[in-house]
């Protein structure tokens, strides 16, 4: 396949960025999208230019590091996948592909297609855990957990922290991200004791870090590579309401 790429280039967080156009040839439809960018990098290096900087690591859809906005969609034109799992067979020979970084106040661009997502870490540090010290756990089977609860909890826990939900949301809200963790832990008996404090602390941190409010457009759910559902936001709202009633 031969393609035209319009790629966002930006020297660093302070510089002004712009789109650059590149022609790339002979891309196999069986290549992944990031392998196509690898080919672009090789081409640029051979021309004595700097390759495009982008975040990626596991390349199997689980680390959450890759993060591209491709033709106006987070993780590109396919359902429930990350950019690294997107394959070139989803495009046609001669296509023009526009590649941008996540754009959200909470995720500043640091170079080209790379953004900083440490805000997600900070939200989780505010309370996205169960406070248990190593060594103080009881026997694992002491508390049975209904299977459907464990499964729902796992649905929330599937979040990979990529930020597609924020990048897609017109308000740049991190509600789905926050909700997935609040929900995962609130569904488990082990997470109950701190559920109220957790929901409150995480939402407060999200607000503080410049993420917008949720207006229930549902765009986040559509673009979530792991199919994390809006139901978790409903559960977060319940936990948050409970938090405000209790405190």
């Amino acid at each position: 396949m031969d393609l035209t790429l319009k790629v966002w280039r930006q020297e660093n967080s302070k510089a002004k960025g712009n789109f650059e156009s590149y022609q790339i040839k002979n891309i196999s439809p069986d290549s992944s999208f990031l392998e196509m960018i690898d080919a672009l990098s090789e081409q640029l290096i051979n021309e004595g230019k700097e390759p495009v900087a982008f975040d990626h690591d596991c390349r199997e859809g689980i680390c959450g590091m890759c993060s591209l906005f491709i033709n106006g969609r987070a993780h590109g034109p396919d359902e429930e996948i990350t950019t690294c799992q997107l394959h070139m067979r989803k495009f046609k020979d001669g296509d023009t592909i526009v590649i941008e970084p996540w754009r959200a106040a909470g995720f500043p661009v640091i170079k080209d297609l790379m953004v900083e997502r440490d805000a997600f870490d900070k939200i989780l540090q505010a309370g996205g855990f169960i406070s248990v010290n190593t060594g103080s756990a009881q026997e694992a089977n002491a508390i049975p957990i209904p299977q459907h609860k464990a499964e729902e909890s796992m649905d929330g826990a599937s979040c990979i922290g990529c930020g597609a939900c924020v990048a897609t949301c017109k308000n740049s809200s991190a509600m789905l991200f926050v909700a997935s963790k609040v929900s995962q832990l609130a569904l488990l008996p082990q997470g109950k004791p701190e559920a109220v404090r957790r929901a409150k602390a995480m939402v407060a941190k999200m607000d503080e870090l410049g993420f917008g409010h949720c207006t229930n457009t549902g765009a986040c759910e559509v673009e979530c590579p792991k199919g994390v559902s809006l139901d978790h936001i409903a559960r977060l709202n319940r936990e948050f309401l409970a938090a405000n009633l209790k405190f």
Binding site: F129, I130, V132, T134, G135, S136, A137, Q138, E139, A140, A150, E151, S153, M154, A157, Q184, L185, L188, Q190, G191
Partner: peptide
């Protein structure tokens, strides 16, 4: 296993 269950590993 005990530790991970206590941490909320589903």
């Amino acid at each position: 296993i005990d530790q991970c269950v206590a941490q909320g590993v589903p």
